[in-house]
Each structure stands twice: as C-alpha cells, then as structure tokens.
Design a protein around this nucleic acid. Sequence first.
DNA 1: GCGTTTTTGAGGTGCGTACCTCACGCTGCG
DNA 2: CGCAGCGTGAGGTACGCACCTCAAAAACGC
Lengths: 352, 352
Amino acid sequence: MRPTVNDIAREAGVSLATVDRVLNARPGVRAKTVSAVNEAIDRLGYVRNVAAANLARQRIYRFLFLLPAVQSQFISALSDAITEAARGPLAEACEIVIARVPQRDPHAMISVLDAEGGLQVDGCAIMAHETPEVRDLIARLKSDGAAVVSLITDQPQAARDHFVGIDNQAAGRTAAVLLGRFLGPRPGKVAVVVSSMLARDMVDRRLGFDEVMAERFPHLQILPSLEGHDDRALTRQITLSCLDQGDVVAVYVAGAGTRGVTEALHEVGLAGRTVVVAHELTEHTRAGLQDRTIDAVIAQDIGHLARSALRVLRAKADRRPIDEGQEQIRITVLLRENLPPETSDSGPSLPI
Amino acid sequence: MRPTVNDIAREAGVSLATVDRVLNARPGVRAKTVSAVNEAIDRLGYVRNVAAANLARQRIYRFLFLLPAVQSQFISALSDAITEAARGPLAEACEIVIARVPQRDPHAMISVLDAEGGLQVDGCAIMAHETPEVRDLIARLKSDGAAVVSLITDQPQAARDHFVGIDNQAAGRTAAVLLGRFLGPRPGKVAVVVSSMLARDMVDRRLGFDEVMAERFPHLQILPSLEGHDDRALTRQITLSCLDQGDVVAVYVAGAGTRGVTEALHEVGLAGRTVVVAHELTEHTRAGLQDRTIDAVIAQDIGHLARSALRVLRAKADRRPIDEGQEQIRITVLLRENLPPETSDSGPSLPI
DNA sequence: GCGTTTTTGAGGTGCGTACCTCACGCTGCG
DNA sequence: CGCAGCGTGAGGTACGCACCTCAAAAACGC
C-alpha cells in the first residue's frame, strides 16, 4: 500500500496538521520541522494522491482558449476538438471557454478577456499573431498568476509557459524535402503561400523550407512569400498573378488558403502538373490529395493539440512538471495513399 | 455544481442505498425502481465522479505486458516506455508487470502467464506472432474476464478487445510512395526485408507496399520478402545474397534488422546510392538517416503506444468506451531534415 | 390474511486529502 | 511576572463515492 499523510506524520513524529502545512506550503512551520517532514516523505516514498487531493479541494479550474475569428475549416475543427476534449476526463473539474477574437484588432483581445472574467482564469491558451499587444496580454495574464500557453503559433518573445504545437521549422524542412525529391531534377520556380508573416508558425516554416531548399535543391528558385491573409479570394488572385510569370513547378502552401491555390492551379491548367505541398487535413486538402492536385499534406493531430493544451494548462496551474514526451506534437505526412478514412461523426471534417 | 448520488436519490424519490445498487448493478432492485433511478440520472445529467469512485473502491488494476524476448532496440525502448508510462498518472492504482517471452516457443507464454498470477490479471497487452497458441491464450484470458489488447502487431483472428498500433497497411503504402517517388523514373529491383511473415504487421506492411507499387510504380520489380527473424547477422547475409543478383535500386526494410541491411549495403558499396526506407527510430536508423544511407524512416510514437495500451486496458477493465481519436496511433515520416533531437535522459535512444 | 420472499431505507465506515478551529506550550520581551 | 506571538497538536468536517449491515416495508404466493 502506498503511504499516506498519516504515515508521514507518524514517521516524522509530528501531527497530521503539520504535515499538511508542509505539503501545501502553508506558513507556521519551523524550518527544522519542515525538513524533518520532507525527510520522512523521502524515506517512505510518499506521493500525493492527486485524486483525493482534488476531491477534497473541490477546486474548479477556469481555462480560456483564444482563437482567431477567421473563416477557416482548420480553426473550426480545432474549436470542435477543444470542445470535445473539454468533455473528456482531462477536463475533470475544469470550466472551459472558447472565445474567437478578431485578428487585426489589437484591443479586441483585451476586451474579450475582460468579458470572460478576465483575470479570474487559471489558465489561457492563445493562438494569435505575434504582436506587442499579445505580448502585453500574456505578461498581464502571467502577472495575475494564470498559466499561459501559446497554441499552434508560438510567442517566443512573450512569457508564455509553454508552446503547444509542432516544430514548424521541422515542418518547413519536411515540406522542402518532399517537394524537392518529388520534383526530381526538374528546375524551375517554387511559390510559397503563407497566411501572414506576422504569424510565427509561418515564419518558422518558411525558414525551415528555405534552409533545406538552399542546401539540397539549389536548382530551384524560391519566390518571395505570398500573403493570403486566410482569405480564399485573395489567395486565389495572388497565386494567379504569381503563376503568370511562368515556370512555376511547385507550390508550398505553408498557411491557410489551399483552396485558393488549387482553384488558381485548375484555372490555368497546372493542377496535377505542379508539385503541391500543403498543411492541415481539411475537406479541401483531402480532396486535393484524392484528385492528385496536392502531393503531400503536412498535418498536426488536432485532437492531440487540444488535449495537450489542456494537460499543460492543468499541470502549470498545479505547478506540476509536464511529460515532455507526451506533449510533443508530431507532424504527420499525409499522402493520397495513407489518408485516414473520413470521420463523419463529429463536426465537419475533423482531421485525424 | 455537478449533481451527486444524493441529488439522484432525492430526485428519484429513493434512498441513497438504492441509487448505489443501481449504479453498481447490484441485485435486489425492482425493474421499475431501476428505471426511475435511471430517469433521474438522465434528467439531472449525472456523471459518476470517477476519481471519488476509485478512491472509495481502493481497487488495484493488474495489467500484464507480454513482449517478445528478442534482442532489439525497439523492444527495449518499448519496454522502457511502458515502464515510464507506468509511473505516470495513467497508471494510478495500477500494478504493471512486463514479461519477455521467447517467440518461437508456443508454451512459454502460457507458463509465463501462469507464473505472473495468470488469470488474476485485469488486463493484458500482447505483442506476439499470430499463432494458434496465442489465439487460444487470448481466448482464455477473455473468458477469465480480463481485457486483452494486441500491441504493435495485431491478432485480427483472436478475440482481443482492441489493437494498439499503427495502420500497417497504410505504413506500407506510405513507404511505397516515398520509395517510388524518391527513386524517380529509374527502373530496377526493390528488395523487401521483414522480420517474419508470421507477424501480422509485416504481412500488412507488405500488402500495402505491394498495392501501391503495382499501381503507381510498375517499372519497379518487387522481390520476394527476405525474412531476417530479428537477427542482425542473418539479415546481413540474406541482404548480401539478394544484392548479389544486381540491379537492386531500393530496399524497404519493413521489420527489424536495419543494421544488417545497412551493413550489407556498405559492404558492397551501395550505401547512399540505393533508396532505403526503414521503420522505427533507433540509434541505427538515426545514424542511417544522418549519413544518408537511409532516406526515410516510418516511425510510431512509442510513448503514445504505451500510454494508449494503458488507457485502453483501463477503459476496458472498467467497461468504459474509449476515445477512438486519442487511441489512434499515427505514423511519423522521419527524414534527415526533421529528425527530433536525441533525448539522452531516459534509457538508450528512446524514440520520440 | 398468513407467512415468505423480495425490495427498500437508514445509517455507518472508510478511501486520502484539504482546510478549519481551538488550545497548548514555549520563547522572548518589557 | 505576565503577555504577545509563534510553532505545533488534536480534532473535526468535508469531498463523492463504495460497500456493508440491519431492519422495515412492500410484494408475492397460497
């Protein structure tokens, strides 16, 4: 049987109340007594029964998820995944609110936060562009004692506790290798479409992509990033004018907007003849893989992302360490040949 | 606040004892009363507090992991991952035993099981070849009320509750696409190395591989499977004699034995000039990717595997449904360019 | 309506922890 | 010497549930 607080008290020769004070870092215990208790804990190998502790504490964790208010299948699926995770055992004793915030308005986020009880939250997961406003917001949350994680796109300059997302440089490098090797020795130009260079994930993907392209595929000419701003029509248009210059043999769609790109490719009759590597599994990328417009999709497991954010927020709120291995979000390379079957049950095209 | 058993009792107009009898399926309650209680449960949206229930029940789950007793970095790493998961929160109130069983001896598994308390276990995860003995063993475990999952390699004919592992056909198809496209239009022969065709995962990988090869790369000639039986020297030898026939332009290492293959390739001076796709991230495959002997590695997240097995066994033991999404083990395509940094802390070359 | 069986109620104890109150003894200070 | 203040002990209640006992009530068969 595992030792309990009572065993510790007996072993240390103190009362249960004192053990409790030590365990929960409450004042009113002499340093000497504290170490006596800690020694007893080590000797018996005591580990706190988290279930019993939470039962007794009756604590409710309030977590807030801030997602950009853009029209995107990926964000919708992410939102669904969070909702689903919030129903699971990970969200035991948790109250979870998902708020969608306009991306271009720096003050919207502050007001949303205030509306949602603001500083009362125990933790917050933020997916947003890397702006001074967001950085300040994170600092404010942290100084109020909340745990903060950046989601999907990192905020490396801010005081977030953790980044929940993939290694985007590695993703960009992977895209480069696939694109380059699928293309073979054929020379030409490569277009890169991003949503916005304000998003850290886009920057990182581009960095990784360029690195490998320069090193391994110098016969390919990488064009400047096209910013589609998560807008399908705009993406289509800028892709078209880029294709206009001719000799574009491949496209790396690092951000949202795959639909705009494939539309453009179809219009000029290049679909299937241009190597396309895109990100995230949605209805459109799935269809693109099926009809061979897209050669490879680099996806992240959105359910894992949601659960990981929850686990990390929870751990940080309890000041517990996290299991790095479990929180590492891996990238999946999807091809026409290994597409997971469509899961029609929960939400529109929930990526696996 | 979430409703408790007391709320149910009040709502249903019965006593707490009766609610308890219904909840835990104890006898001595009229059908009418049962449905009254169930209606109250539905009306209030009651969900059992699992933590409190387990606390009160003081139940200890006994789970047994049966792994093949072969000399393999992958199996060692898997064993380590299970040990690590067994220390985590998932293994709360669990006693976990890992047993290594000789693969060729059909009776060894039975005797190990008996030695480990045999029928006393609440659940068992089995990684083994698909033999009649194993099938019988699973049937026996099941009839004794234990939960059974197959691990890594499935037992589709047996009465296992669940398969914890990747979609091996999809893995084989992925290998085929990468190998074929990396190779380009160059014709030639492709060698396939497996550990044993008795292992279901090998069969499935080969099936998926052949399917895509036939469909998309008909200019390549796929050679019969070479069985290395997880033996480095044997694998090296059979690879050598296969390379002897000449014109082998690619090798798909579907099973263990990558070291034997790369050794053979180096010996005949074909390393780096032959496209090699292998499985699992170990010291050797990592080194192979680094020095470009290996072009791509298809890996499964071993930590996820261990945690998933634990979660599923636990859920099955409690007769709870599982979260399909969370238990889906995805495959990771590793290239030289997206190799995760080596984690030297826990165990020898723990795959990420 | 009787005896018998089945169903139900009331209540208790315990799981391991958090958190609270009250009181006691000790120390040091004026 | 008395008193404040600190460190500690003793003990209680609560969390939500499992599981037990004993007795009372209801249903049943005849």
